[in-house]
Design a binder for these strands. Structure first.
Lengths: 219, 219
DNA sequence: CAATTACTTGACCGACGGTGCGGTTTTGCT
DNA sequence: AGCAAAACCGCACCGTCGGTCAAGTAATTG
């Protein structure tokens, strides 16, 4: 990585932190360049305008987010061949990862962009849409694998359930930030995990009959 | 309501719409006064500064939000004496109310403030915290009433479950906005409702034994 | 060595957020 | 009708912000 790409990366990182703390509209270029130790001309050498900064920042965030999720759920899949167990393990690993963040989750750029839509051009809004769609597709894939083996105990829309993961995370981030208690985010994820467990597996109270086994046999 | 209070209310309404669309930092006073048909001086007659606008806007939003929830869950309590049924009915009524909003839910000021914390003074941040705490308390009360009659089928933290309602709503709002599909918010609420139903009531598959009745007898 | 990359210096612009103050209209009250 | 308070208007002013431009330089790289 050359010197240029290095500075660019630094700008994006500073911008991201600032956007998460005050929003895009209140994030000034002057402030970014002061922290990055460059001049305004230096900034505009790397980015045509603020919207290009937003685009790259968002793309960077989404890519990193997906990288982390890939890693976590790949490891989970390694730990169990059963899709339900793998998904439950993945959710737990994810919750642990979030719980281990020293200052809590810094915030979700996607949510930040969402709440300032009018500030961005169509491309940024579209990137945001695709990012969320990608997350929904991911969790839907996991859940379809689960549903192909276990029958849900209650009729539930798989799409809505897949979307619920992202909703819980975005909502949990807000909950954690507002209540100034980082733990609430992983807690929400674990609560969702209980839901999935309850929906697809045997009840905890006692050993009960059929439904799960029947589906397994069909494999 | 006098003319002054009227103008004030109009300002707050315009500001709220603008904040939800672009965030507080990017909401200009010039824009507000243009839409309200007053001058800048007129604005500053009503509000000392932008932070006072934020305070009043947030308070107004929270009060209205609570009013609506009071109404919905009071009606739900009227429709059933059973706390579980009442809560489930309330969630459904709430989902229907959200589904009936012509242009979808405009956004949550609490979430908006959360994602621009550094822009506000401590008082605004504190109002926000109390608002969320109030919501958590509300849903915790409902759930405690449920849990006093029905034993949960899976060990679950009631606090986390109560917080989940707000998380689902805030997350659902983001999901609906980003995906440009208002229906996703009420869908999330209904998915959560399935969770509660599954957690506390008899399984759908067959009539099963004891746990609920035992708790009822203790009443 | 030459060209490209990655910046700096510095001047500048129009628009906007925000403040302050003095003046004017409107309203309610007696 | 008269008067005070409430509800604004006009306007000047400042700092900041996004963004532009021209010219120059120091370090990489082929």
């Amino acid at each position: 990585m050359g010197k240029g790409a290095d500075t660019r990366e630094r700008i994006l990182e500073i911008a991201e932190a600032s956007v998460l703390a005050k929003g895009f509209g209140a994030t000034s270029i002057d402030e970014i360049i002061a922290e990055a130790g460059i001049t305004k001309s230096g900034f505009f050498y790397h980015f045509r305008d603020k919207n290009e900064l937003a685009r790259d920042m968002l793309r960077r965030y989404v890519a990193e987010d997906n990288r982390i999720l890939d890693e976590i759920f790949a490891r989970a899949a390694d730990l169990s061949d059963d899709p339900l167990q793998a998904f439950l393990i993945g959710l737990k690993l994810f919750a642990e990862t979030l719980a281990d963040l020293p200052n809590g989750h810094p915030g979700c750029i996607i949510a930040s962009v969402c709440y300032q839509e009018r500030l961005f051009d169509r491309e940024v809004v579209e990137i945001n849409r695709q990012a969320v769609e990608g997350l929904n597709d991911r969790f839907r894939r996991y859940l379809e694998a689960v549903a192909s083996v276990y029958a849900p105990r209650e009729p539930v829309d798989l799409d809505a359930l897949a979307e619920m993961v992202t909703c819980i995370i975005d909502g949990g981030i807000i909950m954690a930030k507002v209540m100034k208690d980082p733990q609430r985010l992983p807690n929400q994820l674990l609560a969702f995990r209980s839901f999935v467990k309850l929906l697809f597996s045997e009840p905890a109270t006692a050993a009960l009959h059929v439904p799960a086994r029947a589906a397994i046999a069909a494999e």
